[in-house]
Every structure is written in C-alpha cells, then in structure tokens.
C-alpha cells in the first residue's frame, strides 16, 4: 500500500498522522453539559420551575384555612409534602418540554449532524444527554422542593403544622418527587429522539403526561380503571404524594419502565436512521 501512495503523491511529503486525545465518556458528558447550559431555553425552563414552585408553595400555605382545627401529628408530614411538591405538578410539564427540546433542537437546526460526526457510534450521545439532563433536572427539582419547604415552613408553623427535613416520612417523598421530575425529562428526551421534531415531541410528551390519564378516566371499563396506577404521571405523583395503593418504590419502578421504553425506542431509531 505504501508504494502506491509514494508513486501517486506529487512530492515526497510524509502522510500526516492524527494524534492527541480521543473520544471519552467524560468528554462527552462535559460536551453535553456545555450544550445544555449554553442555550436560553434551558435557563428559562429551570428558572421557571423554581419560581413557580416557590410561588405555589407560598400561595398554598398562606391560603390554607383550617378553621381552628388541629392537624394530627401523624398527618403533619403529609401536609408539608403536599405544599412542598405542589410545584412539581407544573414543573413536570416544563421539564418535559425541555427534555424534548434538548434533542429536537439539534434536529431542527442540523446540529445533530455535527454531534453524530463527533460521535459516530451515536448511542453514547444519547446516553450522555440522558445522564446530564437527569442530574441537572434532579438538582433543580431538589432546589425547588426544598426551597418550597423553606418558604412554607414559617407560614405552616403559624397554623400548627410542622415537619422536620430530617424526618424520613418527609425527606424520602421529597427525594422521590425530584427523582420523578428528572425521569420525566429523560422520558421526554427519548420521545424527542424518536419523533425528531419539537412540535411533535412536545405534543407527545404532554399528551402522555396530561391527556392520557384524563382520557382514560372517561372510559368506564373496569380494566381501564385497573390501568390507571400504571400511567406515567399517576405512578409519578403516587410515588411522593402517597395517594396510591402501591409502595413508593413500586411507583418509581413503573416510571422507570416508561423511561426505559422511551429510551430503548430512541436508541434503536437513532442507531438505524440516516442523520
């Protein structure tokens, strides 16, 4: 082979050989972190989640009227959970949009071709995106929830309701709520990758979160009623609001199932399709 090169190349220039650092998962995670923080939609989305959570905690705690009734000590943690996580019900819609946009924005602008040229095996891009989105959203969720708790605590104390953050009955559900929020973002990332469109991805994500439970409620069949706890948003809220019949870890497993299906579909299509 070397001889043919030498005979056809115009001068005796030695062939340039590439050198230097290679592709790595750590580098890929840093790359996705730079991508996430350097677009405005991320900043706006996360800021909105935090602000809405704090405002709702303030609103809910200050408008709560007990008419002089005393709340039993065993119920106080449950009240604090409700006040602290109320914002997550709205926050899940915002992070769903963010999750879709984090990949559909690459498809709509053509950026995905740059990303996939840098990482031609493709799946590491999806993995790195999911990890970065999960961690960032988890932190934002935790900040929103703990912030809501701190905002509501003095107001609720005035009404005779209080719970300590170190109480596992309060602490664990709050962690679950943040976990659910970040899993919704990753679930939506998968949908965005499957549909490759911002409008389609957002419609699908909000459809699953908002519309699916509502529509199913309209069907009077018993088997439909049995399915309700397995719907993504029902399982998610059950995991921290203690409204369902299952254990929190079972609820989280159901949510993880939704995420797994979404990511698996995304992985197969990302690998197979032309970019």
């Amino acid at each position: 082979m070397t001889t043919t090169v030498a005979s056809t190349a115009p001068a005796a220039t030695p062939t340039f050989v590439a050198s230097g650092s290679a592709l790595s998962l750590a580098g890929l995670l840093r790359s996705e972190w730079i991508k996430l923080r350097s677009v405005r939609s991320t900043i706006w989305s996360y800021a909105t989640v935090i602000v809405i959570s704090l405002l709702l905690a303030l609103l809910m705690s200050s408008t709560l009227t007990l008419d002089g009734r005393q709340v039993a000590a065993s119920d106080q943690a449950s009240w604090m959970i409700q006040v602290s996580t109320f914002g997550i019900i709205f926050g899940q819609l915002i992070v769903a949009v963010l999750g879709v946009l984090s990949i559909s924005g690459e498809y709509s602008t053509g950026m995905v071709r740059s990303s996939l040229t840098a990482v031609p095996r493709r799946l590491p891009v999806l993995a790195a995106k999911a990890i970065v989105l999960f961690v960032c959203t988890y932190i934002i969720g935790l900040v929103s929830i703990v912030g809501s708790y701190l905002v509501a605590t003095p107001i609720m104390a005035g009404k005779g309701i209080s719970a300590s953050l170190t109480d596992p009955d309060l602490f664990l559900p709050l962690m679950s709520a943040a976990l659910y929020l970040s899993l919704v973002a990753v679930f939506s990332l998968g949908l965005g990758t499957i549909l490759r469109s911002s409008a389609g991805g957002i419609a699908a994500a909000l459809g699953v979160i908002l519309l699916l439970p509502t529509v199913l409620q309209l069907i009077p069949a018993e088997w439909v009623a049995d399915m309700m706890p397995y719907i993504l948003s029902n399982a998610g809220t059950d995991s921290f609001a203690m409204t369902g019949t299952m254990e929190p870890w079972q609820n989280i497993l159901i949510v993880l199932g939704w995420v797994a299906v979404s990511l698996a579909g995304a992985a197969v299509l990302l690998k197979r399709r032309d970019a």
């Binding site: 840093r30 730079i34 350097s38 405005r40 990482v119």
Partner: peptide
C-alpha cells in the same frame, strides 16, 4: 441558539 464559541467548545469537549 448557541454562540460560536460554545458550539466549538462543546464539539472540542467530546475529544
């Protein structure tokens, strides 16, 4: 939506 610098920085970070 990204600046030229951040685009190049994100591409460079992968390697």
């Amino acid at each position: 939506g990204r600046s030229a610098y951040n685009h190049l920085l994100a591409m460079a970070a992968t390697h």
